[in-house]
Amino acid sequence: MDNNVVEQITNTWPQDTSIEAFRRTWILEGEPLWERVFAVHHERMQIKNGKTALRNLQKIFTCTFRLANSQGFHSMSLRDLSRETQISMGGLYAYIGSKSDLASAIEAVVRQTIDDVMSDLEQYQLDPYQRLKAVISADLYMNHIMHPWYYFCFIEAKGLDKAQREAAIEMELKFDQRLEEICQQGIKSGVFRYDGDTALLASSTTAMLQQWYLKRWKFQHLKVGITDYAAFVFQHVLTSLNYQSQVSDPLSLRSQA
């Protein structure tokens, strides 16, 4: 393969699993994020003007996260949100019909983002090692970039209505199943050697990933950055799976670097 082509491939997500490569492919902050929110939520809104909607959606969700963190979503009222955003109650109702509607939109944005990123990975037909690394890295990067969204879905889950709680649970179980499938694929192909409970391994890996947005203060105290933590989680899972590199292809070696 031409060296320039190899260089281009290895510098592109998901062959390059750095957060810089991920950010180049998936822009999950700033205006693109609010465009994503609008795309997910616009059918429930009375406002159809895109530019106006993006500005106010940013106010509504940013203030929701701030109020939820300071007083809890359960005790927050739409009147509190109206004061915080400086959007009238009538204006607010043009975007959200209720607190339940607001919580549902937050969960839907997170779920849709995860589905988009993970579904996109499937088209690359990565081997189990590369796929596991990309899935672990992608999940960490998403919850790092969209921290308030993930934190809300986890912390406020108990206070949501039944349908929203079930959706949040289903979202986590689906990710567990994806990890378990990769482990089983690697075991079947001989890349991994593991005779334990793959469902439990997948679940414990998800819990490790969740620590990044639940315990950010702890990692800041330890002076651990996201690149280091992604490498730590990946290596921990590889060790559990008794992985030993048998790769000889230079391109594959570079993608594992």
Rank of each mutant, 00 (worst) to 15 (best):
N3A: 15
E7G: 04
E7I: 11
I9S: 05
T10N: 06
N11S: 15
T17Y: 04
R24K: 14
T25C: 10
I27F: 01
E29D: 11
E31K: 11
W34Q: 05
V37T: 05
V37S: 04
V40E: 08
H42G: 04
E43P: 01
A53P: 00
K59W: 03
T62I: 04
C63A: 12
T64R: 01
L67R: 05
S75G: 02
D80G: 10
D80W: 10
D80K: 10
S82E: 09
R83V: 14
Q86W: 00
I87Q: 02
Y93I: 04
S104I: 00
V117T: 12
Y124A: 04
Q125A: 11
K133S: 13
S137V: 10
N143W: 01
I145C: 03
H147P: 00
F154W: 15
K158D: 10
D161A: 09
D161K: 07
A167L: 12
M171V: 07
E172S: 12
K174H: 08
Q177L: 15
E181F: 15
E181I: 08
D195T: 08
G196I: 06
D197Q: 01
L201K: 01
S203H: 10
M208C: 10
Q211W: 02
T227K: 12
Y229F: 14
Y229N: 02
F234G: 02
V237Y: 10
T239V: 15
S245K: 01
V247L: 14
L253M: 08
R254W: 05
